[in-house]
Design a binder for these strands. Structure first.
Lengths: 252, 252
DNA sequence: CTACACCTTTACGCAGCGTTAAAGTCAACC
DNA sequence: GGTTGACTTTAACGCTGCGTAAAGGTGTAG
C-alpha cells in the first residue's frame, strides 16, 4: 500500500505539514519521491510513523525519538512494552485529575468542600510541601496532629449548610468580640459569650470538645501570623483579647 | 505570607521565568512591587497561580486561562463539566492507544496482524477513510473473523502476568522448535511437544480451543509472509515445520 | 568589604508545527 | 482538449511558552 502525504495524514490523524516537517528533520522520510516530486510512503514508513506517534504520546521530543529509533540497539518489542507501562502510568495520572475535577464540581455545587491541598491532588507538583512545613508542620508539632487533622477532615467533608451556619457563627463571634473589646475586660459577659460562640463554631470542625485544645488553639491565634491577621484585621490586639477570653472560659 | 519570584516558583514548581512571563502577559501580576523593583506575591496570587496551574494541567492555553479568569460571567461549573468531558474523552483515547500498543506487541511477536488503519487507532479523533489492508482483510476472510477478533479482544483485556507468562511460553516454543527441527521429523516427540506448547500459548489469546482453528492458524503461519518471517527468522522452513507438527498434533 | 545568591530588564532562541503564498500536477467531467 | 478542483511542491514567516544568556542592581552573612 502506498500513500501520499494527505492519505497518510488522514490515516494517522496528523497534518500534511507535520509529515513534511518530519521529512525535513529526517525522522520520517518517504519511501520514494515520484516523477512529480510527490512524497510516496510505503509499509515501512507507516510502521515507523506509528512508532513515532507512540513516542510522541509520551511527550518525547522528536529529536529524542529520532535518536532512539536510529539507535541500532533499538529493540522494538522492548520499546513497546515500555510504552505500555508508561501509558498505564499516564492513565493513572489522568484518573487522579479526573477525580480532582469531579471533586471540584461537587465543591462548586456545594456538595462538598475541598481543602486547598485537595484542589491540587493529582498534579505531580510537589508544591506547597515546603510552605506547609513552615507553618503547617510547626503548628502540628506544637498542637498535635490529631486536633488539626480532625479539623481538616471535618472541614473537608462538611456539608454546605454547615459551612454557611458556621459562617454566620463566625460573624456573630466577630460582632461579640468587637462589642466585648470596648469593655477591655476578657472576663466580661460579652467576652465570655464570644468565647462560648467560638466554642460552638469550633464544634463544626472538631469532632469532640476539649478545653485544653480550645485554649491551645486560642494561643495559636496569637502565635500564628495568619490567624492573628484574621482577628486583628480591624482592631489590633483582638487575637490576644480572644485568647484571654477563651483562657478564662476554659478554666471556668 | 509574601513571596519573591523564586520562592513562589519553588512553591509551585515552576520557573521564575514563567512567573515573569505570566506577569508580562498579564495573567498573574504580583501583589506589589517593592522599592527595588522586586515582584512581591501575596496569598491571593498564590491561589490564583494554583488556579492557573490547574487549568494548565487541563491543557488550556494561557490565553484562554486569562480570558476565563478575567471574565466575571465565566461559569465555573459549566467549564468544569466541559473539562470533565474532555478528560473522559482523553482517557478513552488513551485506552485506545494502550490497546493499540498491546496489539502492536502481539503483532511484533507474530501473534497477530494489524491493518494500517488499526495501527493508528487512538491517535485519530475520527476514523475517516476505510483504508483496506491487503493482508488483514484477506486473512480475516479466509480464516474467519471470529478467530482473529476473539484474539484481539483477549489481548486487549489481558492482564500483565498473563502477558509475561505468554512471553515465557513463546520462548519455550522457540526452543522446542529449534530442538525439534534437528530431528527433521514433525511427528517426533519434541516437535509434538512444541505443538502442545503452542496450543497452551494460544490459549492465552483464544477463549476456547478448537483443533480446526489451530490447524488453520498453522497454515496461516506459512501463507502469511509476516508470520512466516517471525518463525523463519533464524532457520528458514521453521514455519512449515511448525505447521506440519501442529497438523499432526491436531489429528491425533 | 567582599562574596554570593538573589533580583531586574532586554532580547534572542527553540520546538513543532499552522498558515499563507505562489506555483505545479492529476483525474474527472464537459 | 480544456477547465475545474482537489491535490502536490517549496519557501517563508508566525505562534506559544517559555529557556537561556547578558548586563546590571540588591540584600545579607561573614
Amino acid at each position: 500500500m502506498e500513500y501520499t502525504v494527505q492519505k497518510l495524514g488522514r490515516l494517522a490523524g496528523i497534518s500534511t505539514r507535520a509529515l513534511r516537517y518530519y521529512d525535513e528533520i529526517g525522522i520520517l522520510k518517504p519511501a520514494r519521491i515520484n516523477s512529480s516530486g510527490y512524497r510516496i510512503y510505503g509499509v515501512k514508513e507507516v510502521d515507523r510513523l506509528q512508532q513515532i506517534l507512540f513516542y510522541r504520546e509520551l511527550e518525547i521530543s522528536l529529536e529524542r525519538i529520532k535518536a532512539i529509533m536510529n539507535d541500532p540497539s533499538f529493540d522494538l518489542n522492548e520499546a513497546l512494552k515500555a510504552h505500555r507501562e508508561q501509558l498505564l502510568d499516564k492513565r493513572k495520572q489522568l484518573d487522579l485529575i479526573i477525580a480532582n475535577v469531579e471533586k471540584t464540581i461537587a465543591s462548586s455545587e456545594g456538595r462538598m468542600i475541598m481543602s486547598d491541598k485537595e484542589k491540587f491532588e493529582g498534579f505531580k507538583q510537589k508544591m506547597i510541601e515546603d510552605n506547609e512545613n513552615k507553618y503547617g508542620n510547626e503548628i502540628r508539632g506544637k498542637y498535635g496532629n490529631k486536633t488539626v487533622d480532625k479539623a481538616n477532615e471535618k472541614v473537608m467533608n462538611m456539608a454546605q449548610e454547615d459551612h454557611e451556619e458556621a459562617g454566620r457563627l463566625a460573624e456573630e463571634i466577630k460582632a461579640a468580640l468587637a462589642e466585648a473589646r470596648k469593655t477591655g475586660d476578657p472576663s466580661s459577659e460579652t467576652a465570655q459569650k464570644a468565647a462560648e460562640l467560638h466554642k460552638q463554631w469550633l464544634m463544626f470542625y472538631w469532632s469532640e470538645y476539649n478545653k485544653e485544645a480550645h485554649a491551645d488553639l486560642a494561643q495559636m491565634y496569637v502565635d500564628d501570623e495568619r490567624f492573628r491577621k484574621y482577628y486583628d484585621e480591624k482592631h489590633p490586639g483582638t487575637a490576644e483579647f480572644l485568647r484571654d477570653a477563651i483562657h478564662i472560659y476554659t478554666v471556668k
